[in-house]
């Protein structure tokens, strides 16, 4: 045990390590602060957090859980992209291959699918929790707005992904969904045409949804998630419920 620790310490003191993790070795609060500040991802967080914000009742960890599902979705989504062709009818054949041939392909697809559902659910839950906690109040107004846009993005991501298996379920779900767009006054038909790349759900729509699902929407979502997190810090950290003290 001790040797592992010393070896690890040795590793941490090498030049290479130091160039990557600038905070260096040490176990003071200063080092811990630096670990956060000098890491582009952790930098989004503040260095210290009120411990009441970490209590389960404060947030139910809904934001963190949502982010977890998002991570799972990115990871599984990238793996699924290795097996998927956005073309008709190959898309459906790829589902069959995932199911029957690809090692753990079913698991991968299940994970992606269920994570997507879970994320939609968690985003809604997060939103309601934030509302009931009053955590959108100034100075967090704009972060709420970003949150609403993230909700819409999540729905769009899920909806565009819904079509990709190209089975009856997805085809008709998307058909029903896209028919709603037709109801927009004046330009409903044009919106639907733009959305599907044609007048009906076909190979064009599949390609369009694929690009949206795999490139445009995830990048936008990542960007907005970044802003969302950054804003948490800038707006005074995680919201902590008022103490019922006189």
């Amino acid at each position: 045990m001790a040797t592992i620790k010393t070896e690890f310490e040795k590793l941490r003191s090498t030049d290479v390590w130091r160039t990557i993790f600038r905070s260096g070795s040490g176990s003071s609060n200063l080092h811990r602060s630096q670990a956060v500040q000098q890491n582009i991802f952790l930098h989004l967080f503040s260095v210290k957090i009120r411990s009441r914000a970490l209590e389960f009742s404060a947030t139910w960890y809904l934001g963190a859980l949502t982010l977890s599902t998002f991570f799972v979705l990115i990871a599984t989504g990238i793996l699924l992209m290795f097996y998927y062709h956005p073309s008709v009818p190959q898309a459906y054949a790829d589902m069959k291959d995932l199911q029957f041939v690809v090692a753990s392909g079913v698991f991968l697809r299940n994970l992606h699918r269920w994570s997507a559902h879970a994320m939609v659910f968690l985003v809604f839950a997060h939103m309601f929790k934030v509302f009931y906690r009053g955590a959108y109040r100034p100075p967090r107004q704009f972060n709420w707005v970003i949150g609403v846009f993230l909700l819409l993005l999540t729905l769009l991501l899920s909806y565009t992904g819904y079509l990709l298996p190209w089975d009856q379920l997805s085809f008709w779900a998307v058909t029903v969904g896209s028919n709603i767009a037709k109801a927009v006054p004046l330009m409903g038909k044009q919106i639907r045409f733009l959305m599907l790349g044609g007048n009906e759900v076909n190979a064009n729509a599949l390609l369009r949804f694929y690009v949206l699902h795999c490139v445009i929407l995830p990048l936008t979502a990542i960007l907005l998630v970044g802003v969302h997190f950054w804003r948490i810090r800038k707006d005074g950290g995680l919201h902590v419920p008022e103490k019922k003290t006189p």
Binding site: W166, D167, F171, A173
Partner: peptide
């Protein structure tokens, strides 16, 4: 969940026959 429940997959998309009812994703 993924180990125990398989994601649904129906027959290949067929514009010629509409399932009854045709349902949107659950959140819609």
């Amino acid at each position: 969940i993924s180990l125990l429940v398989n994601a649904p997959l129906e027959g290949i998309a067929d514009p010629m026959h509409t399932p009854n009812p045709a349902k949107a994703p659950w959140y819609f």
